[in-house]
């Protein structure tokens, strides 16, 4: 096992999870939000540095003297990012990540689908977040609806208990994770997920069958982007042979590796309809907390008692 693997959170021991996530928060404070130039100062006077850091967030986005209500004047992406940074200062177990998908704003563009594919370097046939389209009504009274479907990160995830080897588990933040190295690829969890949110990685690549010919770029350079690692679960998975995640169950993980860096999930940042919203539902001031209290909220297949953490607004 590498250093990293040792560190990966075990399903039940929250302390470990919090450690790592806490480090993520640290990384955020140290790298993502704070101008790195300020790091020296950080070392010298941490208290002052933290204050400076907070101020910087504010300066970066708000004018002095404006209250947090003015976050509303920002792109929701920025508002959510600032809320994310706030949430990262809490213990992992104290945050409750949820996703809110406003179907009124979803235009069925599939940017989230492809953004996710690109972020996680998903091979052919692996998709974490398809967008389902449907048409109903009759001409000229027609309607079309677009329903993005990430993993619901169920609070009672039916996919978890079926796994014979605990390769999938809910971490302290409520995200249902995969342990690729452990997964034996039995696909039981695929059958158990009521949302078809899990898929299997069958080891395809997009460019493998394309000829390498002098005079053409060919696969020699053309599949570099496919071979570059993804950063799922804070590790690096380059696509090599039949190594994991080939042969494993795969699923949306709320882009945990990004969240911990203070970056919103890829499907959230790239949602051009601003239909996909993300945040800590335990933060009463957060956008998502506000939204999941609205009367037009619903969750998919709620009758199954899975308690999804993905909410839809109708």
């Amino acid at each position: 096992m590498t250093e990293q693997e040792k560190l990966r959170p075990e399903p039940t021991t929250t302390s470990e999870v919090s450690r790592r996530n806490f480090l993520g928060a640290l990384a955020t404070a140290g790298g993502a939000a704070l101008a790195v130039a300020a790091l020296d100062q950080f070392a010298a006077d941490p208290q002052a540095a933290l204050a400076a850091y907070e101020e910087q967030i504010v300066r970066g986005t708000l004018n002095q003297g404006q209250s947090s209500a003015d976050l509303r004047a920002l792109d929701v992406l920025e508002r959510m990012r600032l809320e994310l940074l706030r949430a990262l200062q809490k213990q992992p177990s104290e945050r409750r990540w949820v996703m809110v998908i406003d179907l009124r704003k979803c235009i069925g563009c599939h940017a989230c689908t492809i953004g996710c594919v690109a972020e996680n370097k998903l091979p052919p046939g692996v998709v974490y977040r398809p967008v389902i389209e449907e048409e109903y009504g009759t001409y000229p009274n027609v309607a079309r609806r677009f329903i993005p479907r990430p993993c619901m990160q169920c609070e009672n995830p039916p996919c978890v208990p079926v796994c014979p080897v605990r390769a999938t588990f809910t971490n302290a933040e409520g995200i249902v994770e995969m342990d690729y190295e452990r997964c034996i690829g039995c696909r039981y969890c695929l059958t158990a997920c009521p949302y078809s949110a899990r898929v299997s990685d069958f080891g395809f690549t997009y460019t493998e069958e394309i000829p390498v010919i002098q005079g053409l770029v060919g696969t020699a350079a053309a599949d570099d982007y496919e071979r570059a690692p993804n950063f799922e679960y804070g590790k690096q998975y380059a696509r090599e042979g039949r190594n994991s995640p080939v042969g494993n169950a795969r699923k949306c993980h709320f882009c945990q590796h990004r969240i911990l860096e203070g970056v919103l999930p890829a499907c959230v940042t790239t949602c051009i309809g601003r239909a996909t919203l993300f945040g800590d539902a335990n933060d009463p001031e957060s956008l998502v907390a506000e939204l999941i209290a609205s009367p037009n909220v619903l969750r998919l297949r709620e009758e199954l008692g899975t308690e999804p953490r993905v909410y839809y607004l109708k």
Binding site: L7, R20, F231, K235, H257, E261
Partner: peptide, 10 residues
């Protein structure tokens, strides 16, 4: 490992 292993593209 933990820190280096997060999302370095940021």
């Amino acid at each position: 490992g933990a820190v280096a292993g997060t999302s370095p593209l940021s």
